[in-house]
Design a binder for these strands. Structure first.
Lengths: 187, 187
DNA sequence: GTAGTTTTTTGACATTTGTCAAATAGATTT
DNA sequence: AAATCTATTTGACAAATGTCAAAAAACTAC
């Protein structure tokens, strides 16, 4: 839950209550390496918070597997557009390795918010947080060359490289695996 | 306010009240063509909702002017990361033509939320809405070729092309003006 | 430890896009 | 209408990236 706490003033007593309530709604699930957690075409009903290991959201573009998002400890993943809009998802989610993740269901969040509307604020703050992450991602894609994107990713998520194939990283930063390989060779 | 209403169930009486309160906080401002509305380096204190005409958010990358976002009627613009995080903005905002826009200040929104925490939900819904727009933008950038991005933009915002220079559109879809010109010539 | 599988790298070449400079077209001002 | 300014297009070439095929390296399972 670190990522939520990070952006909220935990001196508010209400926050403590909110976090406790959230914890109680979370279930710990176990996933095997390469296990599919969510499949494109269905509605995404859960957010996943990895406790260890990495999860990956991806989709297919003309048979090519493109990574949209990685989530390790302290981060989260869901087919968020599907989760929010309750419509079919284009994303798949899979475990990149044997791991555990806390899950939080759409239903449970809605009921919690309905029961405690004062918690809306924390969901808003969470959304603000992930919105800004996305905005940074766009800047990165528009602004930077492939090489710069690669170097920024190393700085920002160094642990990623011990867990994730280079092919997935390449598609995440929007280039082919071969190009990534050549960028790496340059150093 | 169309964009807010679109995504909220207006049968809730509370929503009507919320919208009324928002309206009352909004101020109508007038801008001249090419007028700078917000300057990089300062904190963005307002969201702008054009009534007519187009506004543009942009930044500089190595002296090149890059458009991050267009806003016409029914849409909105702000240096949203700055607005949310209260830190200096890298974005500039300008009017692309003589126009009027409603503005909503950070201060006023905060006070409204503090006075009526039940409204948090609507801000959350608004954030969900703009989050999804951003996610679509990323997919577009990663997924599609320059030509496809151009064609999608025509479909999605046809009016844009009557108001905006091709140079701005080119930087928005992440290509040079010359490349855009060649794409257009192909048809 | 060997065989088999997957991942990563490399080579050769094609394609896309960018850059710079100049030409053209379109607007605006006088 | 001419002069001026701005926006757009075009040409020539350079740079970046993609594609396909094959080799090399790393990892797995027996």
């Amino acid at each position: 839950m670190q990522f939520i706490i990070d952006h909220i003033d935990i001196s508010e007593p209400l926050v403590v209550q909110f976090l406790t309530d959230l914890q109680n709604l979370m279930k710990l699930e176990h996933f095997e390496k390469n296990q599919k957690i969510h499949t494109a075409g269905s509605i995404c009903d859960k957010i996943y918070f990895p406790q260890n290991g990495f999860l990956r959201a991806y989709y297919y573009k003309e048979d090519k597997d493109i990574t949209a998002h990685f989530a390790g400890e302290g981060s989260s993943v869901a087919a968020i557009d599907s989760f929010i809009q309750r419509k079919k998802s284009r994303y798949n989610i899979e475990a990149l390795e044997k791991c555990n993740a806390f899950t939080l269901s759409y239903q449970d969040i809605q009921e919690l918010l309905a029961a405690h509307p004062v918690y809306e604020k924390y969901i808003r703050l969470f959304l603000e947080h992930i919105y800004i992450e996305l905005a940074e991602r766009i800047e990165d894609l528009v602004f930077n060359t492939a090489k710069e994107r690669y170097e920024k990713l190393i700085l920002k998520q160094p642990t990623l490289f011990q867990h994730v194939n280079l092919g997935h990283i390449a598609s995440y930063i929007g280039i082919s695996q071969e190009t990534l390989s050549r960028i790496r060779a340059q150093k």
